[in-house]
């Protein structure tokens, strides 16, 4: 039985229905759920498993395999900074260290101010290294000052 009092579960059920309960669409279903709710709540996993007629282990396996899916809500501002070779050649490691220091947080965690800083391997902007993405917006030739301004703007 689905817990229909939990809005996250009803959201998951709606999305599964819109994909005709096709288990091959599981990744797309999880994307849409995360786009809507901000994360994949543990409570939604049994519901998705039941609706797609697959095991909970299979759903858990997919959610935990892919880097995109978060198990907890992120901060108000999500900054993804590329750590791949091309961006490293233009100082990405230093940039990440400075931004993390400025917001007093570590890669992969959320600061008290609500800034989540994450690593990503390649955004496809390798001729404009270092590259970053802030709440879905791409930034080429990222600098500490530029990112900081954009973060402050997005927080307010």
């Amino acid at each position: 039985m689905l817990d229909e009092t939990d809005p996250r579960v009803t959201a998951a059920a709606e999305i599964c229905a819109s994909h005709a309960y096709d288990p091959a669409e599981l990744i797309e279903i999880l994307h849409e759920l995360q786009d809507r709710e901000g994360y994949i709540a543990e409570e939604t996993l049994p519901a998705i498993a039941q609706l797609l007629n697959i095991s909970r282990a299979e759903v858990h396996g997919v959610v935990s395999f892919y880097h995109d899916f978060r198990r907890e809500p992120a901060g108000k501002v999500v900054v993804k900074i590329c750590r791949a070779e091309s961006c490293q050649s233009m100082g990405a490691s230093k940039l990440i260290a400075r931004i993390c220091e400025r917001y007093n947080t570590d890669l992969g965690t959320t600061s008290r101010a609500g800034v989540t800083i994450e690593q990503v391997f390649c955004l496809g902007l390798c001729a404009q290294s270092p590259a970053a993405m802030l709440n879905g917006r791409f930034i080429g030739h990222a600098t500490e000052e530029g990112l900081d301004t954009a973060i402050v703007e997005a927080l307010s």
């Binding site: 590329c82 791949a84 390649c122 496809g124 902007l125 390798c126 001729a127």
Partner: peptide
């Protein structure tokens, strides 16, 4: 799934 660093031709 063009994940290689330094590539963006597919994109």
């Amino acid at each position: 799934d063009e994940g290689d660093s330094g590539t963006f031709a597919d994109r």
